[in-house]
Design a protein around this nucleic acid. Structure first.
Lengths: 340, 340
DNA sequence: CGGCTTTATGCTCATTCGGAGTATTACTGG
DNA sequence: CCAGTAATACTCCGAATGAGCATAAAGCCG
């Protein structure tokens, strides 16, 4: 992380604290993440998450600092925010290399960076044109996470490559195959929408995706190992994976989707939003039952007529539900996978 | 991004990174947390969690640093470890005071501290006698979290005090009452074992518990507002609350209890461990059904005869379960609350 | 030894919940 | 009016859950 965003300020023992935000929104059935373009600074071309350093003196809380950076970089004001994870391993990208401690000189020069990641949910809005921020489809970065159209050939390809990687080292073959089976739902457990990070880590270890730092000896020998997936700056894709996994888990027992919805919505719109995030299709009638009987929404009398068919009633979130039920989430009434 | 995170205050921008570990174990139906006694250093008398500073140069990963500190302070080697949360608010203890920025001098002097908390599960062992560490009952610090004997009179007392606090400020009365209702399960939702932190925060705001730093103007006017609960150093009790809440939540969908159990155990022992952590009683036959039919355990032929009654079969954890099921946890087959 | 106490373990019953699918209704666009 | 497209209402069924009764197998006590 030597190409850190900071002047290696402080003294030797200095640790730089960076706050990164994963801002998620959903529009038109596609989950989007806010990315900022930093290409003109001569750094990586890859999109980055909005981020910035903590000012230990001025910033009273971490969250305030995060909001400040997001505001500066995108003009957005955040609503729901939750802390995700703190990444602080040194030489993260070198994990796979043989342990070869850098020279004392290098070590002294490279300041240690601690990155505290946050998840924020926003109703999508245009970002200020003056900024370099924009909304990107989350699945551009993690295409294998979108199973709404069933498992695609691309996933088959990935699995084949993973198998190769697993088979490569006889000593670890069994262990690796087991990890793959679990992470990618090949066994009896099936696809677990929440294991986003686990899948990413596997792909990373197998060098099928890479992180920031072009030219650091990443890409495998054979062509483009990442298929059509797009990398992000430094470890931001890993952070995104963490965020998506966490959000998918929480959807089931907290009414988080509503942070992403307009005040009034049809049940199908709601379902599409959940599907977009979870990356799987749901059973329509059961989803409706779950949400209505669960007391999560209440109908306004109004209806929405641009549905193409019978008009749909507009609903709104019933805030009282958090007082009534212990774990008011939307659940994921599964549906058989479409197309093979 | 001209306003890029270049270090604002080059100088004194130092941030101290502290790692704290919540080590949990269960013995004799009581959940224990490892505490260290630091009283001789002239600090607070209150028990502390094992903790220590990150050495940004030497410690390759945060987890390694944590393990090192734990080893030094207790002699224990950690198995399961998971990151909990990063606490970084400045002047945490002053939150309730009117915003009265300290003088520049004070601010410069007090270094910003960032504390990264970890949860670790260990099978209880004696701690090295040479250390100042010992195992303490978690519920010494959070007595209201133990509902195994039903709601006690002490809880009633706490609720009465909370009500007073809520009623105190007319403008916030309704909001506060609602928070209390939800957190303490007075409404239709009932007691949610996971809302540990929420409850703690409420009690903290109401000044019914306090944090470290004695003499900082804490204790309310009236006697001992904390009943029989024991404070911990600085914000360690808050960290413990975070850990307990997280663990309780995860128990339900990950086979974490087994990290705390010996290799072989009877189903009642397992149940007691879960009960100790969750703080509620479970329905015995249904717990057994859940655990057995869920494929979480397998019987060894052996049996345990010191049960006081019919001998119980000894079981062991079936590791394969993580491959078979998506969310293999023990669930909490509720039981009507005992005693009123 | 026979009954008593104590815990383990087996089983039943009623409900609820979740997955699937069919039927009916209410619009829009020719 | 008809066809097309969704929304919405119900029905069915099997699995999971909550509760509780019944039986089994030890130790203990006289």
């Amino acid at each position: 992380m030597s190409e850190s965003p900071t002047a290696p300020a402080g003294a030797a023992s200095g640790v730089q604290i960076v706050l990164s935000g994963v801002l998620l929104a959903v529009t038109n059935e596609v989950p989007r993440v806010l990315t900022v373009d930093r290409s003109e600074l001569g750094r990586s071309d890859d999109p980055a998450l909005p981020f910035g350093a903590l000012d230990p003196v001025a910033d009273r809380t971490l969250e305030i600092a995060l909001r400040k950076w997001v505001r500066e970089q995108s003009g957005l004001e955040l609503g729901y925010v939750e802390q995700l994870y703190t990444f602080g391993d040194r030489d993260r990208d070198d994990r796979r290399r043989v342990e070869a401690p850098s020279t004392a000189g290098e070590r002294g020069a490279a300041q240690r960076i601690l990155s505290i990641a946050y998840l924020a949910l926003v109703e999508e809005r245009e970002v200020a044109a003056t900024t370099r921020a924009e909304w990107s489809d989350c699945y551009r970065f993690l295409p294998w996470e979108d199973r709404r159209e069933g498992r695609t050939k691309r996933l088959q390809g990935l699995l084949a490559e993973l198998e190769q990687w697993a088979a490569g080292v006889p000593a670890q073959r069994a262990a690796r195959r087991e990890r793959i089976e679990i992470a990618f739902g090949l066994g009896p457990g099936g696809w677990d929408t929440e294991r986003v990070l686990e899948r990413y880590e596997l792909l990373y270890e197998a060098r099928l995706v890479h992180e920031g730092r072009r030219g650091a000896g990443e890409a495998g020998a054979s062509g483009d190992p990442i298929y059509t997936s797009q990398a992000m700056a430094v470890d931001h894709r890993r952070i995104l994976a963490t965020a998506l996994g966490r959000l998918r888990g929480k959807l089931k027992y907290r009414p988080l989707v509503f942070e992403l919805m307009p005040d009034e919505f049809t049940l199908l719109q709601l379902q599409r939003a959940v599907e977009a995030l979870a990356g799987v299709r749901l059973h329509k009638q059961n989803f409706r039952r779950l949400v209505e009987r669960g007391g999560l929404v209440e109908g306004t009398g109004r209806r929405h007529t641009q549905t193409g068919g019978r008009p749909a009633e507009l609903f709104r979130f019933r805030r009282e539900v958090v007082r009534e039920r212990a774990a008011p989430g939307v659940g994921l009434p599964a549906r058989r996978e479409v197309r093979g």
